[in-house]
Structures are given as structure tokens and as C-alpha cells.
Amino acid sequence: MAADGTLVAGAPAAAGSGRANTMQRFARRRSTIAFLMALPLIALIGGLVVYPAGYAMWLSTLNRRMTANIGLGNFEILLDSDTFWMVIMQSCIFAVGAVIAKALIGFWLAHMLHHIPAKGQRKWRGMLLIPWVIPPALSTLGWWWMFDPSYSSINWLLNIFAVPAVPWLGEPWWARFSVILVNVWYGSPFFMIMYLAALKSVPDQLYEAAAIDGATGWQGLRYVTLPMMQNIISITVLFSLIVTFANYDIVRVLTNGGPRDLTQVFASYAFQVGILSGNLPRGAAVSLFMFPVLAVFAYFILRGINRRNKEQM
């Protein structure tokens, strides 16, 4: 009886401690397996992102032939040169101008798409997203040909309306405008699709409630749509600012920095200085100037996404 009792009492205890043991081992094994599974990712990020970033900082302190450390010499030389200040200005004009235009056009088109009957939306959306699907380096070739000084097909169209021919890539301000135009053409569909997804997630009841309260269409937009989409709008804009700020292919194909280095942005200038002229340290320094700006944008994106996650929970 007593033996029976201890047996009965002992068995669950033994089983319990055994389970705790295996559970512990299991947990230990589980985290080990998890770590091993994530290892390729860690190696990739460590070896090809974090290490190069550190290497870039060290590289930017060397002299041209990479024989001596000159501290912040490269940065000083860059900040002393007028060309580099032009590059900073042009990068800002390019990024801010293009992103504002993309955001407005994308918002407008998303709204228009949202208004038409649902069964037609797919077709329109499919056509409007095409600029985003073609690799930008290749579609920019088409734009380059459309901007060609003697054969420009855009000028031909303008001529019909008696508008004089525009020197698209020849004059500095027109070249700046053209680069932005191509970027807007390429990037607007992305904004459109993001905003359309956000618009669809706004519950209809909110608009009904607003309409019952006597809100006009404009007030509905101002007090219902915008607040509901605020987070997506800011995430998309910040994300696009990063990508546009660091853009390379459009400038490379369309103007290659010309005329007289006036459309050069950070990326294309870094390429020219670092790879084409062979001054790798200074090229690295040019790229690194982008870093603080990108870091600030990244911080705000992360904050936006965290806030969004909390709202959803």
C-alpha cells in the first residue's frame, strides 16, 4: 500500500522532472537549431554589409594610393570643392523634387483607381504599373532616345502645338528636370500601388459616418483618409527618399553627370571619383556622405513601422 503510494507519488514526480529536463534540453536544442538556421543570414549581413561598411570608413581615411592614413583629409578636400557642393545640392533637388512629385501623382492615381468600379481596377492597375516593372536602366535608354537633340520625339509632339524645341539634356536646368521626370515616371506606380492598398484598408463605415455628419468629399479626404493613411504615406515617402537619394542608374544612362557635372548626384559622383578615376578612398568618402541622411530616414521608417505594429496589436 505504502509502496504503492510512493510509486504513485514518485512516478509523476519522476516524469515531471524528466519532462522538465527534456524540455530544457529541447529549448536549448531549439535555440541552437534556430541560430544555425539563421547563420547564413548572419554571415551574409556580417560579411557583405557590416564589414564593408566598416571597411568603407577605414578606406575613406587613406590617401589615393592607399599607402598612408590621412585622417579626414578626403572629407576636407571634398568639402572644399565647388563640384562637391553642386553634387550635394543636386542630390537634394533630385530626391526632394522627385519624391514630392511621385507622392502627389501616386496619391492622385490611387484615388482615381479607387473611385472606378472594382472590376475595371485590375486592368488599369496592370497597365499603370508597367513603368515600375521594366528595369530602370533599360527604360531610361528609351527616354534618352526620346530626349535625343536631333531626333527627339517629344519635341516633335511639342512642335505640333507650336512649342519650340526643348534642349532636354543640353541645358543644366532642363537636364535636371529631365532626370527628375524619368525618376517620377519610374517611381509613381510604386506610390500608387502602396496608397491603393492603404485606401482599401480604410473601413467604409468611417466614410458613411462622415457623410451622415455632413462631411463633403474634401473633408472626408482631409479628416478620414489622410489620418488613416498617415503612417503608410510617411513610410513610403521616407523609403522612396532613401532610394531616390541613392539613385544611380537614371543619371548614369541619361546624362552621365553632364552637362559639366551639373546633374551629378552622390552615387554617380562616387562612381566617377572612385571607380573611373581610380581614387577609391575619396569615392568611399563621397558615398559615406549619404550615410547620415539615410540613417535619419531609416530611424523614422523604423519608428513608423513599430508604431503601426502596435496599432495592429
Partner: peptide, 10 residues
């Protein structure tokens, strides 16, 4: 969020 043009030189 790290663009390709930031690290192509290293």
C-alpha cells in the same frame, strides 16, 4: 534600407 550605392566601393 541600405542602398547598393552606399557600399559598392568597399
Amino acid at each position: 534600407l541600405v542602398p547598393d550605392t552606399l557600399l559598392f566601393i568597399p
